[in-house]
Design a protein around this nucleic acid. Structure first.
Lengths: 216, 216
DNA sequence: GCGTTAAATAACTATCGAGTTAGATGCTTT
DNA sequence: AAAGCATCTAACTCGATAGTTATTTAACGC
């Protein structure tokens, strides 16, 4: 309590500081959105001086853009590691639905960041260069599963891969992003462990019934 | 240009002023979220003195709560006007899916308000008294359609009405709330008229395949 | 037509918050 | 070991912003 702090030797590490700022910013932006976040809070959480944020990232908005880009590349990279090619089409699709759900569940900041970006009409993502490259790989992945499913004779033809992609995301994303209002509206704890397992089962059923030739 | 304004006679109308504030607040909160909205902007848009907001609504947060409550009662009341009872179960369900989509499309502020409320972990909706009453009617409506569909022999049994409700909302809501990032990620204008008709058709297919006994 | 009340306004306060200035200090290179 | 530079810090600016104070004025009952 008394006595001055034992004068910590100021360690200098540009890379580590930037990383700490990115991690802290992701958390703050996810918690409060772009508009609701405070640069001072980000600096404090990062254990960095506020000035460093402007030194390394120029502005609050640029920092947000960097955080958002990283969030997108992270999920797209995780998807690419799934190795769905050795599975039959139906199993591959089910695995993708499960993955998407689990990713949202384990990385809730992804959802909040995307929501915040849409409130701003995607003005930051528009400036991104890498987004198209990584996104195409996702669409290709789903297209490939659909094509194989048709070849195997288990999927019906002419299912739009983009619509399917959107639907797979939607049924998980909506449930989780609206978990607070949803729990009130439906008078049910949507985040209870049992509720979560119920939901993923329901989602798999939804997607398989949508693309499979024969249902029951 | 020159000359003072012709000294408008100050009209006093408590009800009308409150209404103007509510309308203005809904637009501002929808555009910028709770945190991003400015009380001064709301007052200006409402053509009311800022002081009136505090006179009638106590605080910015209370105003948000009132706006949110109204948004929920509005959509729930519109649903109740659908008169689905005289339709067969399949047509009733399709009509509900179409309605939900169209309501989100015509009332985009509903989506943004709900998003903002979830960012705040539903702290305002928690205080609401009416939310449960109006919500139950929606669940009852879907339960009734499901029951009738089973009786008619067209729907399969044991479909959870809450999960179905969530899914109907999800496939429309997600598409629209993420239309800005979605249009970039999928390199396709998701709001083009043709894209919108494609989506509603896809959504109806998704829901009907989910509950119907025989698909093709 | 007079007094009371409710509706409305303008100007203010105190704090917050993004971005800056000026300067100090640790690391690397020669 | 001294220069030179990048990393880092404290303290500041100034406009914005939620909420208030003090005052004015329309409406309504009598």
């Amino acid at each position: 309590m008394t006595g001055s702090a034992p004068q910590k030797p100021r360690i200098r590490d540009a890379e580590a500081t930037q990383k700490r700022i990115m991690v802290a910013a992701k958390k703050e932006f996810a918690k409060s959105g772009l508009g609701g976040s405070r640069v001072d809070d980000i600096a404090e959480r990062a254990k960095a001086n506020k000035r460093m944020i402007y030194h390394y990232f120029e502005s609050k908005e640029t920092l947000f853009q960097r955080v958002l880009e990283e969030a997108y590349t992270d999920i797209r990279m995780a998807e690419q590691k799934l190795e769905l090619d050795h599975l039959d089409a139906k199993s591959a699709l089910e695995k993708l639905v499960r993955f998407t759900w689990k990713y949202y569940l384990d990385n809730p900041e992804f959802i909040t960041l995307v929501n915040s970006e849409n409130l701003h009409k995607a003005k930051h993502l528009k400036k991104s260069e890498v987004i198209h490259v990584v996104s195409r790989r996702l669409v290709d992945m789903v297209s490939s599963i659909l094509r194989r499913g048709v070849e195997e004779g288990v999927f019906r033809e002419n299912v739009d891969p983009v619509q399917l992609n959107i639907t797979i995301a939607a049924i998980g994303y909506y449930y989780l992003t609206n978990r607070y209002t949803g729990s009130i509206v439906f008078e049910r704890d949507l985040m209870a462990p049992e509720a979560l397992t119920d939901r993923i089962a329901f989602n798999i059923e939804t997607i398989l019934r949508l693309v499979c030739k024969v249902s029951d």
